[in-house]
Design a protein around this nucleic acid. Sequence first.
RNA 1: GUGGAUGUAGCUUAGUUGGUUAAAGCGCCAGAUUGUGGCUCUGGAGAUCGUGGGUUCGAGUCCCAUCUUCCACCCCA
Length: 428
Amino acid sequence: MDLITKAPKGTADLVPADTHLWRLAEQVLISEAELNGFAEIRTPAFEHTELFQRGMGDVTDVVEKQMYTFEDKAGRSVTLRPEGTAGTVRAMLENGLYNAGYPVKLYYNIPCYRYEKPQAGRMREFRTFGVELFGTAEPIADAQLIALAMSAFRRMGLEDVGLQLNSIGCPTCRKEYHAALKEYFSASREKLCPTCLSRLDRNPMRILDCKNPECQELAAAAPKITEYLCGDCRQHFSQVQAYLAALGIGFTLDPGLVRGLDYYTRTVFEFPSQTLGFALGGGGRYDGLVEEIGGPSTPALGFGLGMDRLMLALKEQHVDFPEPVKCEVYIAAMGPAAQVKALTLVNTLHSCGVPADCDICGRGLKAQMKYAGKTGAKFSMVLGEDELASGKAVLKDMSTGETRKVDIGDSFVDDYLTFSTQQEDLRF
RNA sequence: GUGGAUGUAGCUUAGUUGGUUAAAGCGCCAGAUUGUGGCUCUGGAGAUCGUGGGUUCGAGUCCCAUCUUCCACCCCA
């Protein structure tokens, strides 16, 4: 084959073999979100660039170098969304969703875009399942949100997804902590790697996250954020932990857990996958973001799940999901008259919700049967001149070989349903 | 963005120190008395060897560039 071009770098087609699995995972997430009272929101795939600059913070890597930003034909700067939170906050405010009363609970399942060097689990177009919760500063909300994600993982059969937890405090206590970190790292600034050196002034908390051995060694003895949390933040954090414990949700405290977006406050968390070696998603509280975007001061929190990563994890752990039913009844036909009959019977079955099919490729009987077997049809039926004349045909169970004569006139569907449910009963 | 690998039919791969029409398995299509699939047998379609240059009498095999995918870093979902 000689295609004129391939799919763009960092994008992937989801073919039927994938989409089936995707939909099952999405169904679990959607159902879990809706059990918790969240409703779906759909926002534009692109926004005015300043929304992300203000929302995520201009010194973050994402905003500085990973955004798909371009001018539209009228000269406006727009950006393909690199994440879901900023747009959701904007839409929540713009549509006055808070007027229905707090809390506002929203979820979304959207493609996002970041210009990065692709790798397994890191695409330029990736899908995020996100959940955002507005209007509550209570620690019980943090716990409910985390519980939602953990239940979804459990329902999907993912065994190795953990929970890492930290609190990065509020702007007040973080200011003190930043100062303390700066002082600590400045004392041995010659040991820091170049990237960390540049982080020293802009965001010293990122140094805690550095994988460089020397930086890690330094970071290990660095002041802990927990020692600098103000009374309120400290209490909030310990209550979150207490709620999680009550729910039986295990977690690891990780003082070095710093999220990459500037809007986070207090609780931050990630869902690391042991087998994959990176997190399936993460989130936290962002009590200052709504106000930053121009809304009333509103506490909020949320998380995002990398759907592509989730699918990798499911495949890696060989989680079993039921196969899709492509065809339950296959009606083979011989001759033009029988083809017409097959098409109408199939159509009738469809109207009763039974997946059915007949030949549309002009194949012979043998090839039709072969196709029926390949698609996994439970039953097959052959229609020829004899059947048309007698008004009866033989319905065959493809796995047991058992057969049964059925009417192919008006009582066809009744006959079929009786037979097929009997077969179902035999299985249990 | 930095560093390192990779690329042969739809899929998984073989292809000797560069030498005639580039192999195989699986899959696909068609036959083996137009009336019944899964097994078997036979046949067929399908690759300008990622792309573009270069070296050579001659390149899938060597060189350069470029693209893709993958790995590490960076970062994150």
